[in-house]
């Protein structure tokens, strides 16, 4: 198809090559896929912000939406960390590098970077929902951006040390003085562990970040979110300053196929990022 036709047709993916695959966890059901655009125009046109997602296609199998784990400051690759679950992700996990895939996007809104600028940022995350937060942290720490943000505090919890995503990247962040990294595991691990032990909401309470001039990004499993919100409120965070990212089943990603709605909002085009204040206006169908 001609370049123009591709742009006029949001259903047609852009060709990308699978450059590398990294196993992220001990269970080996989480892998990070690095994709490179085949066409320069596509790479330039794919202008995104942390918090957005894209549809990744394996032609003949299908496509699925994933949050973008790379940062726009990382020019060479798009990263997606994918848990093996359904038919598309199972096939993805079987692929070798060099395989051609498709990408549609970027899709959805992003974290509200205009509002985040100038504030202290607290990141609260659990499990493999950390992907778009990896994007966000990398973006903020980039030397062209770091001045735009205040203190960055990260709290990231996983079940066990082997489930931690992006171990090398996180190790590099820990070397830096301009970001606070707090890692926690659910219960006392068998292997060596230099982080804390405890569930995210409890560790957050102990950490007690100040809500003053701060905004908090929360991504994690529903159970973590349910117990984290009350702690954030206790700490004095307002509902407009608690930012969440939703996931719902999607197909088109462009607000037409009708399945990802939460009340009158579509997660694909109105989200996936919502403030707590916005979510409280919606039925809890997510």
């Amino acid at each position: 198809m001609s370049e123009q036709a591709v742009k006029a047709n949001p259903y047609v993916p852009m060709p990308v090559t699978l450059e590398s695959v990294a196993i992220e966890n001990d269970a080996k059901d989480l892998k990070t896929f690095a994709l490179a655009f085949e066409n320069d125009e596509d790479r330039e046109q794919f202008s995104y912000l942390p918090g957005q997602f894209a549809e990744v296609s394996i032609l003949g199998v299908g496509e699925s939406p994933f949050g973008i784990a790379s940062s726009p400051t990382e020019k060479e690759h798009l990263l997606f960390t994918v848990k093996r679950a359904g038919s598309v992700t199972q096939e993805l996990h079987r692929l070798d590098t060099g395989r051609r895939l498709g990408v549609r996007g970027p899709l959805g809104n992003s974290f509200p970077w205009d509002r985040i600028a100038g504030k202290n940022i607290i990141i609260v995350s659990g499990g493999f929902a950390f992907t778009t937060l990896r994007s966000s942290i990398t973006y903020m720490l980039d030397e062209t951006n770091r001045d735009r943000f205040g203190d960055i505090t990260v709290l990231y919890g996983v079940r066990s040390p082997g489930e931690l995503l992006y171990k090398e990247t996180i190790a590099q962040w820990k070397e830096r003085s301009d970001i606070g990294i707090n890692l926690t595991v659910d219960r006392e691990p068998d292997e060596p562990w230099d982080g804390t032990v405890g569930l995210v909401p409890n560790v957050l309470r102990d950490l007690g970040p100040s809500p003053k001039g701060a905004i908090v990004l929360v991504c994690g499993p529903p159970i973590m979110i349910r117990f984290t919100i009350p702690v954030l409120k206790e700490l004095g965070f307002g509902e407009d300053d608690i930012i969440l990212s939703l996931e719902n089943r999607m197909k088109c990603g462009i607000g037409k196929c009708g399945r990802c709605n939460v009340g009158p909002k579509y997660v694909c085009v109105d989200g996936p990022v919502f403030t707590l204040a916005e979510l409280q206006q919606l039925p809890a169908e997510y």
Binding site: Y11, L59, G60, V61, G62, E63, K251, C252, K256, C257, G258, R259
Partner: peptide, 22 residues
Amino acid sequence: CHCFDICDEERHYKGRRIRTWD
């Protein structure tokens, strides 16, 4: 009503992406 599904059909390296009412 306009909800739809998108799925792929493939055989011998040839295929098509189709949408169907859902």
